[in-house]
Design a protein around this nucleic acid. Structure first.
Lengths: 194, 194
DNA sequence: TGTACATCAGTGAACGCGCGTTCACTGATGTAC
DNA sequence: TGTACATCAGTGAACGCGCGTTCACTGATGTAC
């Protein structure tokens, strides 16, 4: 199971290829993620991945799946670190959202980029849902009973996703925690009756 | 100047290549944008573009430049169409923002994607500024005198950019104008003393 | 108005590159009996 | 416990593809005089 020897059979090649893909992604950007390079980094021949993934698209899907789980974990960690009030938790996951994006630039672009939503593409992996569930839970305290929670969820998600995207795109300038907190202050006005 | 004949000299190849690139982008996605295909679509040999652009990166920069101008025009048009109050203008450009993203998926990803902000890349083209200026002007009425306008600008920009990005990524589901207006309603709480 | 010449903007052939994929193969594993 | 055999997970060579780039070239344009 946890063998890492070098016999003919790798033993955990699937996981090794995913890990290699993530490394390539972060070190060389989206274009560095190819089947051949993943195979080389995992120490197998370039034809080996065909036994585990349905082409490059299949590998990317598996990488995105793993990425979404790490993304969720990053938000949960940030949630647990801050103020335990509902408002504090909500801001906490937003801080985790931004932290993940900054620490995993290329992965973030893979998770939300063109390819993942292209017309011909199979669609977003199931794991995308686990992140949304965290968001949804943290928004719940601010939803008026009987009303649709979706509006508040999308307000919060848009705000933090936009900030993270613009930050990665270099549009907000260097890291500015004070500015980010000012933007998050808008969340104090979410869900109140104004 | 406006010649479109077929002599040895094209006359306006630079513009033709940019137009070809935009067509390829929208019809085939980011990967369809190559020097050779642009040249073919413009009706010249594949070596011709080298006389006008510094490689593929140079062509992309020129395409992004044109894209940012169209983006701004789209916002200005939407601003002019709606309620002329400050709040109405602000929401107007947000509607233009979303409309542009939806009508120019691949271009939108080019303008804000990984490549445009990659470490080795030269940076965002100057034209990116013209869009921000529109946003800044529409935010100005809500900035308290003497305070930094940046906080409100980034709040608004994050909200609309996030919504547009998530919409393109297929995360918000099918087009839902009512939901979008609910999200924009958060702008009613921007810049007030709460 | 005419000529010589430099410069510019194309052509088309050729290059090497990394890619995904296919194929026959082989060693290792697992199962039936 | 031992044997036969099917299946699985790798190897390595080969394929064709489209890409960016280079190169010598040539036709058209523009300028000096």
């Amino acid at each position: 199971m946890t063998e890492e020897k070098k016999p003919h059979h790798h033993g955990a090649l699937r996981e090794a290829l995913i890990a290699a893909g993530i490394r390539l992604l972060e070190q060389g950007g989206p274009d560095a993620l190819t089947l051949r390079r993943c195979a080389a980094l995992a120490g197998v021949s370039h034809a080996a991945p065909a036994h585990h993934f349905d082409g490059l698209a299949g590998l990317k899907l598996a990488i995105a799946d793993e990425g979404f789980r790490r993304f969720r974990d990053c938000m949960l960690t940030a949630e647990a670190q801050g103020d335990p009030s509902p408002r504090g938790r909500l801001k906490g996951i937003c801080r985790g959202y931004l932290a993940f994006a900054r620490a995993n630039r290329a992965m973030f672009h893979l998770l939300f980029g063109y390819e993942m939503s292209a017309p011909h593409h199979g669609g977003v992996p199931d794991a995308a849902r686990v992140g949304y569930d965290v968001l949804s839970r943290c928004c719940a305290p601010f939803v008026s009973p009987g009303s649709d929670p979706r509006a508040i969820e999308i307000q919060v998600w848009s705000l933090i996703h936009g900030y993270a995207s613009l930050s990665l795109a270099g549009r907000i300038g260097p890291d500015d925690p004070a500015l980010f907190e000012q933007v998050l202050a808008l969340l104090d006005r979410v869900g109140n009756a104004s």
